[in-house]
């Protein structure tokens, strides 16, 4: 593969008719587009579970996509997935950190009130659905809400291990790459996450 650092340089090379293998480079860029299209909804759900806010989740996903495309487009496509999850998790953590700082600063303002979660669809809203599948939808939504609440209650590393291993289906090596830790640490975090979730949700959840 030609040596280029960013998607911009790869595209520039691809647009340059004098460059050899421009078709391959353009394919690479298209491949990245396809990868992002495949992963965007899942990434949004991961961010939404962690941040509990639609707009913040969308911003986090866009940030992560931009960073991947700007900095790591030249990496082999097989590396994109763990890289993307690592970037996304860092972005989520940045948002959470900013929120914490904002809360601490704004706590000094007498008229300030913390943001409510009005953008989150509550299971009670779904229960009002009069369609034949309304009750079933409500039950699923309630179960999902409990799962998400339990995931949010986990320490960040445990949540990340559970989401990547169980919900995203990454193998241990990919999860370790995404979490920037050893495979042993992944197993430990995952095991603790499972125990904590079972304790919160119960065996019959």
């Amino acid at each position: 593969m030609a040596a280029f650092d960013t998607l911009a340089s790869s595209w520039r090379s691809a647009e340059d008719p004098t460059t050899n293998g421009e078709g391959a480079l353009l394919d690479h860029a298209r491949q990245l587009d396809r990868f992002l299209a495949d992963v965007e909804r899942r990434a949004f759900r991961i961010a939404q579970i962690a941040l509990r806010d639609v707009d913040d989740a969308l911003d986090a996903v866009q940030d992560a996509m931009t960073k991947l495309a700007s900095r790591y487009a030249a990496r082999p496509a097989a590396e994109w997935r763990p890289l993307f999850h690592r970037i996304l998790e860092n972005t989520i953590r940045d948002v959470q950190r900013r929120r914490t700082i904002r809360r601490r600063v704004m706590a000094w303002v007498p008229t300030w009130r913390p943001d409510d979660d009005s953008s989150v669809e509550e299971p009670a809203d779904l229960a009002a659905d009069p369609s034949p599948h309304g009750a079933e939808r409500a039950m699923h939504a309630q179960a999902l809400e409990r799962l998400e609440e339990s995931l949010r209650a986990l320490p960040a590393r445990q949540r990340q291990a559970f989401v990547l291993r169980n919900l995203e289906g990454l193998d241990i090596a990919e999860t370790a790459a995404a979490m920037a830790c050893s495979e042993g640490s992944v197993k430990t975090h995952y095991s603790r996450a499972v125990h904590a979730l079972r304790a919160r949700l119960g065996e019959v959840w």
């Binding site: 998607l7 911009a8 299209a37 949004f44 866009q62 699923h140």
Partner: peptide, 30 residues
């Protein structure tokens, strides 16, 4: 449950995600 929540994402969110992807790729292309 997780997969179902992804599959049933509303159209508005899907559309915003597509816009976000295009914006990200454009930003990276510049």
């Amino acid at each position: 449950l997780y997969e179902e929540s992804i599959a049933t994402l509303d159209l508005r969110t899907r559309s915003r995600l597509t816009e976000a992807r295009h914006a990200a790729l454009d930003a990276a292309r510049r």
